[in-house]
């Protein structure tokens, strides 16, 4: 019977995933082409930057470099070449580091996923917790105090929060390291390495997540106040449920639906916000990589990062769709 049930639910789920996937490919292709074209609008290319940095370039060496990197080709030719390489899962070679783009990104990806995923997870969990407390104590002083605090967080830029955190927790209290993603020059393993990573992660992750925590807490508060007014809550209370059980079983699940919807959309914003936070905390992620690549006109790296970001966003949104289907059964059967 349970297996039967799972099979019945798996049908519509597959539909949701297949639906997302059929959108994903054309979307990602469109994003790649647009990114490519937009980058051409920037003044200068990688060769200009290299020439400028070397300080001893001649006209001959510059045009030789252009031929070597393919930058002498017309735009349409460059785009076609890029796409055909992409079709063979080749992201090209960095003009700056002369290393395969895939390798460069692969080295940065885990740290970025850790930072962005951690921040999003923290924001959802904390937002849910704060929102639930505020909704169940709506109008009381705890609710008002938290609302004020969230408003403050809401209106403070993340980089400033980051700098203040460094000042307080690293410089004054010496609790957490102020930069990097691991202690340099040590070869830690096992639990020690994990602890070291966590100590480095905690500040940038918190700085990145605070704004979203505030957004989710307010969203959960509003939704839950609405949910708590529904008839089914009164019906559940009339069954003799404890108030905490009521929130846990009925209110949170209903309030989670809008949060998951927006959290899927927020991943893109978080990847963007990571650029600033990674810079402030010296976190070696994709955000900083993209920023450096932009300054150096290292388009293969930049395009690679953008491509991966869009794949991440699409994948997370598909995941959000599946999660929504699980949270709200009305979506699957309609």
């Amino acid at each position: 019977m349970i297996k039967d049930h799972v099979m019945k639910r798996a049908g519509p789920w597959l539909r949701v995933v297949a639906g997302s996937a059929s959108f994903a490919l054309p979307t990602i292709l469109g994003i790649v082409i647009l990114n490519f074209l937009f980058l051409q609008l920037l003044p200068g290319d990688a060769v200009d930057v290299l020439a400028m940095r070397s300080g001893s370039a001649t006209v001959e060496s510059i045009s030789a470099l252009r031929v070597q990197t393919g930058l002498d080709q017309p735009l349409s030719g460059q785009l076609a070449a890029y796409l055909s390489r992409l079709a063979h899962f080749d992201l090209g070679v960095s003009t700056q580091y002369h290393l395969p783009v895939a390798d460069i990104i692969a080295a940065r990806l885990p740290d970025t996923l850790l930072l962005v995923g951690g921040a999003l997870g923290l924001a959802v969990v904390l937002g849910l917790l704060l929102g639930s407390v505020m909704a169940s104590l709506a109008g009381r002083w705890i609710d008002r105090m938290l609302s004020g605090l969230l408003m403050l967080i809401y209106s403070t830029p993340g980089f400033w929060i980051g700098l203040m955190m460094i000042l307080l927790f690293s410089v004054k209290l010496g609790l957490f390291p102020s930069a990097g993603s691991a202690t340099i020059g040590t070869r830690l393993s096992g639990l020690a390495a994990l602890y070291d990573k966590a100590a480095h992660l905690i500040m940038p992750m918190t700085a990145l997540s605070l704004f979203y925590t505030a957004v989710y807490a307010r969203l959960v508060r509003a939704t839950m106040i609405d949910v708590l007014r529904q008839d089914f809550i009164l019906a559940a209370r009339a069954k003799g449920l404890h108030p905490v059980t009521l929130i846990r079983r009925h209110a949170i699940r209903n309030a989670l639906i809008p949060v998951v919807t927006v959290a899927g959309i927020h991943l893109g914003n978080l990847l963007g916000g990571a650029v600033v936070v990674e810079t402030v905390f010296g976190w070696p992620g994709m955000g900083r990589l993209a920023f450096d690549a932009l300054l150096s006109r290292d388009f293969p790296v930049l395009l690679g990062v953008l491509l991966l970001s869009s794949i991440l966003v699409v994948a997370v949104n598909a995941l959000a769709d599946v999660l929504l289907g699980w949270l709200d059964p009305r979506i699957l059967t309609e």
């Binding site: 529904q230 008839d231 089914f232 009164l234 019906a235 699940r253 209903n254 949270l327 709200d328 059964p329």
Partner: peptide, 11 residues
């Protein structure tokens, strides 16, 4: 309760 449409938790 009166309204069976709203007195059961939809999720």
């Amino acid at each position: 309760m009166q309204d069976p449409m709203s007195s059961l938790d939809p999720v």
